[in-house]
């Protein structure tokens, strides 16, 4: 729900004890349905109905007449046609994809490296690193944004001061948010900083499961560090990394909170929109509900396609 990727981690809990896999379940009766009723009601009102309505709205026109109370007009696929021939929309899509690719790649590489360092470091430094990661993971997204805004602040920011004093040029009053590329650089620093702990912890947990004897055998056979990583370690943590990779892709495609926040404190919105903020501006800002709905459905379908594998893996992993 928030971009706080961090807390919204769709994980499966470990069963408290290892239960008998062939659990007997009560058959028959309507008890199960009654118990599901509250959850189904909430999901239907909060997610199901808006979804249906959004599909309908995506085929409708919301113009000036509708602002004065006329019912929305059916226009078939016009919204979709307008959307897919709009260069601004494609600009947003391409920017989001590039932003996502860069951020996911950096997060995965840095996160996995951190996990390897945790594995090799002695106990005390490892715990220090873990506590630091945990602190950063737990930080509410907007609290973290205020810190970063201040660090990058043109006048009182520590980053401008440091760069200037290191003799890397005159950064006095340098504004980091006004240029789109520099805006995305700041956003990338923040998003990667926030996302690394989750990857690091997951990769570390997977690394501790790598069979010790396989590593020893590799060492005896004379495998060097790279070969051990490539042929022993990487294959055994790959399933965990794949799932993390997929979740990161979905999370970094949207990053609404970070982008919206940075736009509000100095970015130029029209040049820095990504998927989430673009839908918001179209819909809430310009009351183009039809177009916004069509675009939102496009994002929805994209997300579901990307996550289908994860849902499938969860179903397979648990005996449902």
């Amino acid at each position: 729900m928030t971009d706080q990727e961090t807390a919204r981690v769709p994980l499966t809990p470990t069963p408290v004890t290892a239960p008998d896999r062939r659990r007997r379940r009560r058959r028959g009766g309507l008890g199960g349905y009654w118990l599901l009723l509250p959850a189904i009601a909430v999901l239907l009102i909060g997610e199901g109905y808006p979804l249906v309505r959004q599909v309908i709205m995506s085929f409708q026109e919301f113009g000036r007449a509708q602002q004065f109370g006329a019912p929305p007009e059916w226009i078939g696929l016009d919204n979709y046609r307008a959307l897919f021939t709009d260069s601004q929309m494609w600009g947003v899509v391409v920017r989001s994809l590039v932003f996502c690719a860069v951020n996911v790649a950096l997060t995965m590489v840095i996160g996995t490296t951190f996990a390897l360092i945790m594995l090799r470091a002695p106990r005390v430094p490892r715990v220090v690193l873990q506590v630091s990661m945990l602190l950063c993971w737990a930080m509410p997204v907007i609290a973290a944004m205020t810190a970063w805004q201040w660090l990058f602040d043109s006048r009182y920011g520590l980053i401008n001061w440091t760069l200037t004093n290191l003799g890397l040029g005159d950064f006095t009053r340098h504004n980091w948010l006004i240029e789109p590329l520099s805006f995305y650089l700041v956003a990338t620093v923040i998003v990667v900083w926030m996302s690394v702990p989750f990857v690091a912890f997951t990769a570390y947990a997977a690394l501790t499961q790598v069979p010790e004897d396989a590593l020893e055998a590799g060492q005896i056979d004379g495998a060097n560090a790279w070969q051990r990583w490539r042929f022993i370690i990487y294959p055994s943590i790959r399933p965990a990394l794949t799932i993390v990779l997929m979740l990161q892709i979905v999370w970094d495609l949207r990053v609404f909170a970070q982008i919206h926040y940075l736009q509000g404190v100095g970015g130029v919105p029209s040049e820095t929109h990504l998927l989430g903020t673009y839908i918001y501006t179209l819909g809430v800002g310009q009351s183009e509900y039809g177009m916004a709905s069509a675009f939102a459905l496009f994002v929805l379908v994209l997300t579901l396609v990307l996550t289908a594998r994860y849902v499938h893996a969860l179903l397979k992993a648990e005996t449902v």
Binding site: E47, P50, R254, F256, I279, L282, A296, L300, T303, T307
Partner: peptide
């Protein structure tokens, strides 16, 4: 898996 951005217009 549905992100809020994909539904918030119609929820609004």
């Amino acid at each position: 898996m549905i992100p809020p951005e994909a539904l918030f217009i119609s929820q609004y």
